[in-house]
């Protein structure tokens, strides 16, 4: 199951890179998809959680190329799976 999710995320990352361009920020991709989405999310996070959570947590992710977050998460999950299923743990 973990491997399926990881491979799915890698495919999403690849597709985003091919479709939107390898250097296009995730924020721009989401903005193109729904111009109001990020504004609503930012207002919610900054007003009801913490301004810093947006500025220092979410915004750096949105500034990265679109493919980085899904592909990076997929790669991380594959590594995690590898660790969990390593011979020492069997």
């Amino acid at each position: 199951m973990l491997r399926l999710i990881a491979v799915g995320l890698l495919i999403v990352g690849l597709a985003l890179g091919l479709l939107t361009g390898w250097g296009v920020p995730l924020g721009e991709t989401l903005f193109r998809y729904d111009p109001a989405l990020l504004n609503t999310a930012q207002a919610g996070i900054q007003r009801y959680a913490s301004p810093a959570l947006w500025d220092d947590g979410v915004l750096p992710l949105l500034e990265r190329p679109s493919w980085v977050l899904p592909a990076g998460s997929g790669a991380l999950l594959l590594m995690l799976r590898g660790l969990l299923l390593s011979p020492r743990r069997r």
């Binding site: 924020g27 903005f31 193109r32 500025d55 915004l59």
Partner: peptide, 9 residues
Amino acid sequence: MPGLRQSWY
């Protein structure tokens, strides 16, 4: 202005 980092706006 940190908001300008959101280059998509």
